[in-house]
Design a protein around this nucleic acid. Structure first.
Lengths: 278, 278
DNA sequence: CGAGAGGTTGAATAAAGTCAACAAACGTGG
DNA sequence: CCACGTTTGTTGACTTTATTCAACCTCTCG
């Protein structure tokens, strides 16, 4: 069972914790370097081969479950791409409340919120043992001078991140609790499929509390909603084990009852006039 | 009264509508061009002067209240910076419901969500007459080859946008209706202050419905909450005219009652081990 | 085997949404 | 300039949804 696996690695992480803290360096077991091509493949972005890309290697860093990749306010110097493992990113408010922003997994990028202010504005925590590719930002910008296509890749990645956040805002703003949980499951299912895992049968890597925070709900509501889905046979749920039994039903459980909230094609809603681009 | 003014320009926009649609070109009244320095100033980003930046001019485009700057699915070719005026950006779901994502105003950037897929993923609508600076994306990327500092500016802008979205998610996920409306007013007040307008007395440019959509509330809840703030003397509200009477009170009306939702410093929450950067 | 974290469930409460009526402002056209 | 229809905003009564509080269960780890 996956669940057992996870917990085992977790306890292992606790054992090696002190030594890894002492190490004060990259834990260097596992895969060490990725080429730019590897990274583009990972990000599902076309890679235009360039001349001498032997030096275009990026080091990996390993994090044990529970470790923080970066904290709020920490000086920004690097982006990370998730090569394997599961994480959460959180905001922390003045009372110490955690607000979960995302659950990064394979091919997701971490740290972009630090570019602007040169300080990370969120915290990233490993939910399982993780292997991340380290992208020192200075190296990245220096490189983009010689490798023009890298710049566009960066724009792509940042823009994609933004579109995702927008979708999240849309969801939080307009969906019922049931619809949010359903979408959460569908999204997870899709992600697992892309990563080559089963899209029908998987383990949640996060607690009900973390899911609730992410979806703007309480942990009880999440639990109840999962139970309700289980009751009507859309899923089978047992603790963190999820089996998707009726994906279509989950997908169709989307918007709130289409109320009067709809946009009217007011006469002001005119089309943009055409204008040439210089 | 500002309100009257707005409506007047609105009706004017309708008069010139047909001609501007016919024009099939930039409406060329008003300011026409901005230099890179102008733009950096507008974005509050330091500008490193470079040699021959005579050609670094960006054309302006005018939009009348009600016009769309871009629609969902439209081919992306340009970013826009708001030079003057007020807009909304929206997502539209399968039932035609609008979800307001932002209310861009002076110095805000539009269109970043189109970079990734080469299609705009949101719709931008002018809420008042607007003057936007057109930033053709190809021109921008071409330029960044000769002007290295431009690249970093772009990263900054995109990252800033992302941090903003994150804050929005945090707000929607964790704040009560009252707190959301209060924060909305405080944010507006700040923005007006930066733009050199009064931070205590201003006009809303959007309907209650649009505010509600933006904050994940119904228009009735927005209306009631504003009335309640009015009742206790924190603000004075009359239709779209807002007077902030107790900014501090609005600012302190933040989080939900600090419930048990707080993060526990679990033993798993360990600090990141130090590791050197190559 | 026992402690503690995570998960489930129920009952009561609170918050926000819905429906509906009405009022105020605007813009249009006489 | 005034009257009328439309859009926007306000308010009340009621309903629904999700939260809160609490008890209990169930894993896993030590």
């Amino acid at each position: 069972m996956l669940h057992t696996q996870i917990t085992k690695t977790k306890s292992f992480s606790q054992v090696v914790q002190s030594s890894s803290t002492l190490a004060a360096g990259r834990q260097c077991q596992g895969r060490l370097w990725s080429s730019l091509k590897d990274i583009c493949d990972l990000l599902h972005i076309p890679y235009v081969s360039v001349s001498d890309d032997d030096e275009l290697l990026f080091q990996h860093v390993q994090f044990k479950a529970g470790q923080r990749v970066h904290t709020i306010g920490q000086v920004f110097d690097s982006l990370y791409i998730v090569h394997s493992g599961f994480l959460k990113t959180v905001l922390i408010d003045e009372y110490g409340n955690e607000q979960v922003l995302s659950f990064p997994m394979k091919s997701d990028i971490l740290g972009v919120d630090g570019i602007n202010s040169r300080l990370y504005s969120s915290e990233a925590v490993a939910l399982s043992d993780c292997d991340l590719i380290l992208l020192p930002f200075k190296k990245l910008t220096a490189l983009s001078r010689t490798h023009v296509e890298l710049e566009n890749t960066m724009y792509d990645v940042l823009s994609r991140e933004l579109v995702r956040e927008q979708a999240m805002v849309g969801m939080l703003g307009a969906l019922s609790a049931e619809a949010r949980v359903a979408r959460f499951l569908v999204t997870l299912s899709d992600r697992f499929a892309v990563m080559g895992y089963s899209s029908k049968f998987f383990n949640l890597r996060m607690t009900r509390h973390e899911i609730g925070s992410y979806l703007g709900l309480t942990l009880e509501t999440v639990s109840r909603t999962l139970s309700a889905f289980n009751e009507i046979g859309m899923i089978a749920v047992n603790q963190r084990t999820i089996e998707i039994k009726d994906l279509e039903a989950l997908k169709n459980l989307r918007r709130l009852p289409p109320s009067r909230n709809r946009s009217k094609q007011s006469k002001e809603n005119k089309l943009t006039p055409e204008y040439p681009v210089q």
